[in-house]
């Protein structure tokens, strides 16, 4: 079956910063062979006396392989589910369902890609880094974070060469007015074959405004994660028409230009 629910084992689990945690799993199937950059899994966060998460948590695959039974995640410890997940120790069991969704398009023939990530959005794009590095495609990364301590450049590149531009809320460099000239210059000067982004609606809107050609990974509250329940829709412009698409299966990766502005909730 293309999508399987598997009882996996935690191999490594550690903090990489004050709020983000790295998780490495060993799976009873060669998942690495079947998982592509931009795809995700549903994680069954453990139920404990303190926490009883009910729905599964969608998490992008952050690393694939190199052993064929290994997959990795990098996640923000945030609410009930991720706080329960956080408590797992090496050797513990974790059930995951996947791989799910449509990942990023990539061609080894390209010369350069531009990756624009905000916060933990870099976890979703991280599997693109080894793809590009192995193919000799140059990488430029614009990484945006609250403060230098949360940037996770190492976690993103994992040793791959790249030209990195870091911007922060703490010194105001991540403000849209300041990121705009930076991105405009990079697009003009480097002419990347593709731009990828994840983690910020503002960066997405900015890249759209600049006419960037590429893809974005989106999030939405979901339940089934397989296109069945119709909960995780977002609005898109396709051939002059407005259409709803399901983030879980038609995405989470979509063409940058097609995303229509989100209706703000509340």
């Amino acid at each position: 079956m293309k999508v399987a629910t598997l009882a996996c084992r935690v191999v490594e689990h550690q903090w990489v910063s004050a709020r983000y945690k790295y998780l490495r799993l060993s799976c009873p199937a060669p998942l690495a062979r079947h998982t592509a950059a931009g795809q995700f899994f549903q994680l069954a966060c453990p139920v404990s006396e303190a926490q009883a998460p009910f729905l599964r948590r969608p998490m992008s695959v952050y690393g694939i392989g190199p052993e064929e039974d290994r997959i990795e995640f990098l996640y923000h410890v945030k609410g009930i589910g991720t706080r329960a997940l956080e408590r797992l120790r090496a050797g513990d069991a974790l059930t995951v369902t996947g791989p799910l969704g449509t990942g990023f398009a990539f061609s080894p023939d390209w010369k350069r890609v531009l990756l624009v990530a905000r916060g933990v959005g870099l976890a979703t794009m991280a599997p693109l880094v080894p793809l590009a590095a192995r193919a000799g495609v140059a990488i430029t990364a614009v990484l945006s974070a609250r403060a230098p301590g949360e940037l996770m450049t190492q976690e993103f590149l994992r040793g791959a060469p790249a030209s990195v531009h870091a911007v922060f809320d703490s010194d105001g460099s991540s403000a849209v007015e300041r990121v705009e000239p930076l991105l405009r210059n990079l697009l003009d000067a480097e002419r990347p074959d593709r731009v990828y982004t994840c983690g910020s609606n503002r960066l997405l809107a900015l890249l759209q405004k600049l006419g960037a050609h590429g893809e974005v990974a989106l999030e939405q509250q979901m339940a089934c994660a397989m296109g069945v329940c119709l909960s995780c829709v977002r609005l898109f412009n396709e051939e002059g028409e407005k259409v709803f698409r399901r983030v879980c299966c038609e995405g989470p990766v979509f063409p940058l230009g097609a995303v229509a502005g989100e209706v703000q909730f509340g």
Partner: peptide
């Protein structure tokens, strides 16, 4: 949206 929300032992 949001069209789903988790609750205690259900949604």
């Amino acid at each position: 949206v949001p069209r789903v929300a988790e609750t205690d032992a259900g949604m």
